[in-house]
Amino acid sequence: MPASTNPTLRQRRLGTELRRLREHAGLTSSAAAELIGVKQAQISSIESGRYAVSADRVRTFARAYQCGDEKLIDALAEMTGGRTRGWWDEYREHLPVGLIDLAELEHYATALRVALVIHIPALLQTTDHARALFRGVFPPLQQYEVEHRLTHRMKRQGILHREEPTPYTATIHEAALRMGYGGRDVAVAQLRHILDMSELPHVTVQVVPFGKEGFHGTGQGVDYVAGAVRKLDTVQLDAHHGCEFLDGEAQLGKYRAVIDHMEASALDPEDSRDLIRRIARDL
Protein backbone atom coordinates (compact mmCIF):
# COMPACT_ATOMS: atom_id res chain seq x y z
CA MET A 1 0.00 0.00 0.00
CA PRO A 2 1.26 3.52 -0.78
CA ALA A 3 2.76 5.83 1.81
CA SER A 4 0.96 9.08 2.66
CA THR A 5 2.83 12.34 3.12
CA ASN A 6 -0.18 13.93 4.84
CA PRO A 7 -1.86 11.30 7.04
CA THR A 8 -5.23 12.21 8.52
CA LEU A 9 -5.94 12.35 12.23
CA ARG A 10 -7.64 8.95 11.99
CA GLN A 11 -4.61 7.42 10.26
CA ARG A 12 -2.25 8.91 12.82
CA ARG A 13 -4.41 7.63 15.69
CA LEU A 14 -4.39 4.09 14.29
CA GLY A 15 -0.60 4.25 14.12
CA THR A 16 -0.40 5.62 17.65
CA GLU A 17 -2.52 2.79 19.02
CA LEU A 18 -0.40 0.17 17.24
CA ARG A 19 2.69 1.78 18.76
CA ARG A 20 1.10 1.67 22.21
CA LEU A 21 0.32 -2.02 21.77
CA ARG A 22 3.93 -2.68 20.76
CA GLU A 23 5.35 -0.73 23.68
CA HIS A 24 2.97 -2.46 26.11
CA ALA A 25 4.35 -5.75 24.81
CA GLY A 26 7.86 -4.53 25.62
CA LEU A 27 9.06 -4.66 22.02
CA THR A 28 11.29 -2.26 20.14
CA SER A 29 10.32 -1.44 16.58
CA SER A 30 13.25 -3.56 15.37
CA ALA A 31 12.15 -6.55 17.45
CA ALA A 32 8.57 -6.14 16.25
CA ALA A 33 9.68 -6.01 12.62
CA GLU A 34 11.68 -9.22 13.02
CA LEU A 35 8.79 -10.95 14.78
CA ILE A 36 6.24 -9.98 12.12
CA GLY A 37 8.55 -10.32 9.14
CA VAL A 38 8.69 -6.75 7.84
CA LYS A 39 11.32 -4.02 7.72
CA GLN A 40 11.80 -1.77 10.73
CA ALA A 41 11.19 1.27 8.53
CA GLN A 42 7.76 -0.09 7.65
CA ILE A 43 6.87 -0.40 11.33
CA SER A 44 7.87 3.24 11.85
CA SER A 45 5.86 4.38 8.82
CA ILE A 46 2.76 2.49 9.96
CA GLU A 47 3.02 3.89 13.48
CA SER A 48 3.30 7.45 12.15
CA GLY A 49 0.21 6.93 9.98
CA ARG A 50 2.17 7.44 6.77
CA TYR A 51 1.81 3.86 5.53
CA ALA A 52 -1.57 2.25 4.99
CA VAL A 53 -2.25 -1.01 6.77
CA SER A 54 -5.00 -3.57 6.16
CA ALA A 55 -7.42 -4.99 8.74
CA ASP A 56 -5.71 -8.38 8.44
CA ARG A 57 -2.32 -6.79 9.11
CA VAL A 58 -3.71 -5.01 12.19
CA ARG A 59 -4.85 -8.38 13.53
CA THR A 60 -1.39 -9.80 12.80
CA PHE A 61 0.20 -6.99 14.80
CA ALA A 62 -2.25 -7.54 17.67
CA ARG A 63 -1.43 -11.27 17.83
CA ALA A 64 2.29 -10.56 17.76
CA TYR A 65 1.85 -8.04 20.58
CA GLN A 66 -0.29 -10.52 22.56
CA CYS A 67 -3.24 -8.13 22.78
CA GLY A 68 -6.30 -9.93 24.07
CA ASP A 69 -8.74 -7.01 23.89
CA GLU A 70 -10.95 -8.20 21.03
CA LYS A 71 -13.17 -5.12 21.06
CA LEU A 72 -10.14 -2.86 20.70
CA ILE A 73 -8.70 -5.05 17.93
CA ASP A 74 -12.00 -4.98 16.03
CA ALA A 75 -12.19 -1.20 16.41
CA LEU A 76 -8.62 -0.76 15.13
CA ALA A 77 -9.33 -3.08 12.19
CA GLU A 78 -12.39 -0.99 11.36
CA MET A 79 -10.25 2.14 11.29
CA THR A 80 -8.30 0.79 8.32
CA GLY A 81 -11.40 1.24 6.15
CA GLY A 82 -11.52 5.01 6.63
CA ARG A 83 -9.05 6.01 3.91
CA THR A 84 -11.61 7.06 1.33
CA ARG A 85 -12.00 10.79 0.85
CA GLY A 86 -14.61 12.50 3.00
CA TRP A 87 -16.41 15.75 2.25
CA TRP A 88 -13.90 17.57 4.49
CA ASP A 89 -11.03 16.80 2.09
CA GLU A 90 -12.28 19.45 -0.33
CA TYR A 91 -11.28 22.05 2.26
CA ARG A 92 -7.65 20.94 2.68
CA GLU A 93 -6.35 23.77 0.53
CA HIS A 94 -8.51 26.37 2.26
CA LEU A 95 -8.60 25.71 6.02
CA PRO A 96 -6.16 24.89 8.84
CA VAL A 97 -5.51 21.17 9.08
CA GLY A 98 -6.95 21.07 12.62
CA LEU A 99 -10.42 21.93 11.29
CA ILE A 100 -10.16 19.16 8.70
CA ASP A 101 -9.13 16.69 11.38
CA LEU A 102 -11.99 17.80 13.62
CA ALA A 103 -14.61 17.18 10.93
CA GLU A 104 -13.20 13.70 10.31
CA LEU A 105 -13.11 12.98 14.04
CA GLU A 106 -16.74 14.02 14.48
CA HIS A 107 -17.83 12.00 11.46
CA TYR A 108 -16.61 8.74 13.00
CA ALA A 109 -17.59 9.53 16.60
CA THR A 110 -20.02 7.21 18.39
CA ALA A 111 -21.08 10.07 20.70
CA LEU A 112 -20.14 13.68 21.43
CA ARG A 113 -20.11 15.62 24.69
CA VAL A 114 -19.20 19.30 24.57
CA ALA A 115 -18.91 21.94 27.30
CA LEU A 116 -18.49 25.67 26.69
CA VAL A 117 -18.60 28.80 28.84
CA ILE A 118 -18.39 31.74 26.44
CA HIS A 119 -19.42 30.32 23.05
CA ILE A 120 -22.34 28.43 21.55
CA PRO A 121 -21.27 24.92 20.44
CA ALA A 122 -20.33 24.90 16.75
CA LEU A 123 -22.77 22.13 15.88
CA LEU A 124 -25.66 24.18 17.30
CA GLN A 125 -24.77 27.51 15.65
CA THR A 126 -26.93 29.17 13.04
CA THR A 127 -25.38 30.43 9.82
CA ASP A 128 -25.80 34.08 10.86
CA HIS A 129 -24.32 33.50 14.31
CA ALA A 130 -21.31 31.65 12.88
CA ARG A 131 -20.77 34.35 10.26
CA ALA A 132 -20.74 37.03 12.98
CA LEU A 133 -18.12 35.04 14.90
CA PHE A 134 -15.87 34.57 11.87
CA ARG A 135 -16.10 38.25 10.96
CA GLY A 136 -14.84 39.07 14.45
CA VAL A 137 -11.74 36.89 14.25
CA PHE A 138 -8.41 38.65 14.82
CA PRO A 139 -6.42 39.08 12.72
CA PRO A 140 -9.38 39.61 10.37
CA LEU A 141 -10.24 36.95 7.81
CA GLN A 142 -10.74 37.71 4.14
CA GLN A 143 -14.34 37.30 2.95
CA TYR A 144 -13.53 34.11 1.05
CA GLU A 145 -11.93 32.70 4.22
CA VAL A 146 -15.08 33.51 6.18
CA GLU A 147 -17.19 31.67 3.60
CA HIS A 148 -14.94 28.61 3.58
CA ARG A 149 -15.10 28.35 7.37
CA LEU A 150 -18.83 28.96 7.35
CA THR A 151 -19.71 26.24 4.83
CA HIS A 152 -17.32 23.83 6.56
CA ARG A 153 -19.01 24.46 9.93
CA MET A 154 -22.49 23.96 8.49
CA LYS A 155 -21.45 20.68 6.84
CA ARG A 156 -20.05 19.46 10.17
CA GLN A 157 -23.57 19.76 11.57
CA GLY A 158 -24.70 17.02 9.20
CA ILE A 159 -23.81 14.35 11.77
CA LEU A 160 -26.82 15.51 13.81
CA HIS A 161 -29.19 15.13 10.86
CA ARG A 162 -28.09 11.96 9.08
CA GLU A 163 -30.07 8.72 9.07
CA GLU A 164 -28.24 7.46 12.16
CA PRO A 165 -27.40 10.73 13.96
CA THR A 166 -24.62 10.96 16.51
CA PRO A 167 -25.78 11.22 20.16
CA TYR A 168 -24.87 14.75 21.25
CA THR A 169 -24.79 16.37 24.69
CA ALA A 170 -24.02 20.08 24.97
CA THR A 171 -23.43 21.80 28.31
CA ILE A 172 -23.48 25.58 27.88
CA HIS A 173 -22.93 28.28 30.48
CA GLU A 174 -25.51 31.03 30.66
CA ALA A 175 -22.78 33.54 29.76
CA ALA A 176 -22.51 32.08 26.26
CA LEU A 177 -26.25 32.45 25.72
CA ARG A 178 -26.16 36.15 26.60
CA MET A 179 -23.22 37.22 24.40
CA GLY A 180 -25.51 38.49 21.65
CA TYR A 181 -23.18 38.03 18.68
CA GLY A 182 -24.56 39.56 15.50
CA GLY A 183 -27.12 41.78 17.24
CA ARG A 184 -30.50 41.09 18.82
CA ASP A 185 -32.24 39.44 15.85
CA VAL A 186 -29.36 37.05 15.21
CA ALA A 187 -28.99 36.28 18.92
CA VAL A 188 -32.69 35.54 19.41
CA ALA A 189 -32.78 33.34 16.31
CA GLN A 190 -29.74 31.48 17.66
CA LEU A 191 -31.46 30.78 20.98
CA ARG A 192 -34.60 29.58 19.22
CA HIS A 193 -32.46 27.27 17.10
CA ILE A 194 -30.91 25.76 20.23
CA LEU A 195 -34.41 25.18 21.59
CA ASP A 196 -35.45 23.44 18.37
CA MET A 197 -32.34 21.26 18.35
CA SER A 198 -32.82 20.35 22.01
CA GLU A 199 -36.13 18.70 21.11
CA LEU A 200 -34.41 16.11 18.93
CA PRO A 201 -34.22 12.71 20.67
CA HIS A 202 -30.46 12.39 20.21
CA VAL A 203 -29.61 15.95 21.34
CA THR A 204 -29.37 17.00 25.01
CA VAL A 205 -28.81 20.64 25.94
CA GLN A 206 -28.07 21.66 29.52
CA VAL A 207 -27.36 25.15 30.82
CA VAL A 208 -25.16 26.12 33.75
CA PRO A 209 -26.85 29.21 35.22
CA PHE A 210 -25.13 32.25 36.68
CA GLY A 211 -24.66 31.93 40.41
CA LYS A 212 -24.26 28.16 40.43
CA GLU A 213 -22.34 27.38 43.61
CA GLY A 214 -19.40 25.06 43.27
CA PHE A 215 -19.05 25.58 39.52
CA HIS A 216 -15.40 25.57 38.51
CA GLY A 217 -15.57 25.24 34.75
CA THR A 218 -12.92 26.16 32.22
CA GLY A 219 -13.08 29.06 29.80
CA GLN A 220 -11.66 26.71 27.19
CA GLY A 221 -14.15 24.84 25.04
CA VAL A 222 -13.97 21.06 25.51
CA ASP A 223 -15.19 18.43 23.05
CA TYR A 224 -15.14 14.84 24.29
CA VAL A 225 -15.36 12.56 21.26
CA ALA A 226 -16.23 8.94 21.97
CA GLY A 227 -14.65 6.25 19.85
CA ALA A 228 -15.80 2.68 19.26
CA VAL A 229 -14.12 1.74 22.56
CA ARG A 230 -13.05 4.02 25.41
CA LYS A 231 -9.35 3.68 24.59
CA LEU A 232 -10.09 5.35 21.24
CA ASP A 233 -11.78 8.43 22.74
CA THR A 234 -10.32 11.84 21.91
CA VAL A 235 -10.50 15.27 23.55
CA GLN A 236 -10.48 18.35 21.36
CA LEU A 237 -9.66 21.70 22.95
CA ASP A 238 -10.17 25.13 21.43
CA ALA A 239 -6.98 27.17 21.60
CA HIS A 240 -5.82 30.47 20.12
CA HIS A 241 -3.36 28.60 17.93
CA GLY A 242 -6.06 26.21 16.64
CA CYS A 243 -7.48 22.80 17.51
CA GLU A 244 -5.60 20.68 20.01
CA PHE A 245 -6.22 16.92 20.20
CA LEU A 246 -5.47 14.77 23.26
CA ASP A 247 -5.71 10.99 23.56
CA GLY A 248 -3.48 9.97 26.45
CA GLU A 249 -5.19 7.86 29.12
CA ALA A 250 -4.58 10.43 31.87
CA GLN A 251 -5.73 13.28 29.65
CA LEU A 252 -8.94 11.50 28.72
CA GLY A 253 -9.65 10.78 32.39
CA LYS A 254 -9.08 14.41 33.33
CA TYR A 255 -11.44 15.83 30.74
CA ARG A 256 -14.10 13.21 31.36
CA ALA A 257 -14.08 14.50 34.94
CA VAL A 258 -14.25 18.13 33.75
CA ILE A 259 -17.29 17.46 31.58
CA ASP A 260 -18.91 15.29 34.25
CA HIS A 261 -18.56 18.23 36.66
CA MET A 262 -20.02 20.73 34.22
CA GLU A 263 -22.95 18.46 33.40
CA ALA A 264 -23.60 17.92 37.12
CA SER A 265 -23.60 21.71 37.61
CA ALA A 266 -26.18 22.28 34.88
CA LEU A 267 -29.95 22.47 35.01
CA ASP A 268 -31.89 19.50 33.66
CA PRO A 269 -32.93 19.74 29.97
CA GLU A 270 -36.45 21.09 30.62
CA ASP A 271 -35.30 23.72 33.10
CA SER A 272 -32.53 24.60 30.66
CA ARG A 273 -35.09 25.21 27.93
CA ASP A 274 -37.08 27.46 30.28
CA LEU A 275 -33.95 29.50 31.01
CA ILE A 276 -33.12 29.82 27.30
CA ARG A 277 -36.64 31.10 26.65
CA ARG A 278 -36.27 33.71 29.42
CA ILE A 279 -32.92 34.86 28.02
CA ALA A 280 -34.46 35.22 24.56
CA ARG A 281 -37.19 37.42 26.01
CA ASP A 282 -34.60 39.52 27.85
CA LEU A 283 -32.50 40.30 24.79
Rank of each mutant, 00 (worst) to 15 (best):
R184E: 11
P201E: 07
F134C: 13
G227Q: 04
D128I: 08
A25Q: 02
T28H: 05
D260I: 09
A266M: 07
E213N: 14
H119M: 13
D233Y: 02
E17Q: 14
Q142G: 13
R184F: 00
T171N: 04
L72M: 13
D268T: 01
I73M: 01
V188D: 08
V146I: 11
M262R: 07
L123K: 05
G217N: 06
L9E: 09
H107M: 09
H193N: 13
A132T: 05
A77T: 02
R19C: 12
H24F: 10
E47Q: 08
Q206V: 08
L14Y: 02
A103S: 05
F245V: 07
E23A: 12
V137Q: 05
E249F: 08
Q206T: 11
H161F: 12
I120H: 03
A33W: 06
P96W: 09
D89H: 14
A41M: 10
E163N: 02
K212E: 15
T8G: 02
A257Q: 14
L99G: 05
H202M: 08
D69F: 10
E270L: 12
R273P: 04
Y255R: 00
L102D: 01
V203C: 03
L14T: 01
R59I: 01
T5H: 10
K231Y: 05
G242K: 05
N6L: 10
Y255N: 03
N6Q: 12
L123W: 04
R19G: 13
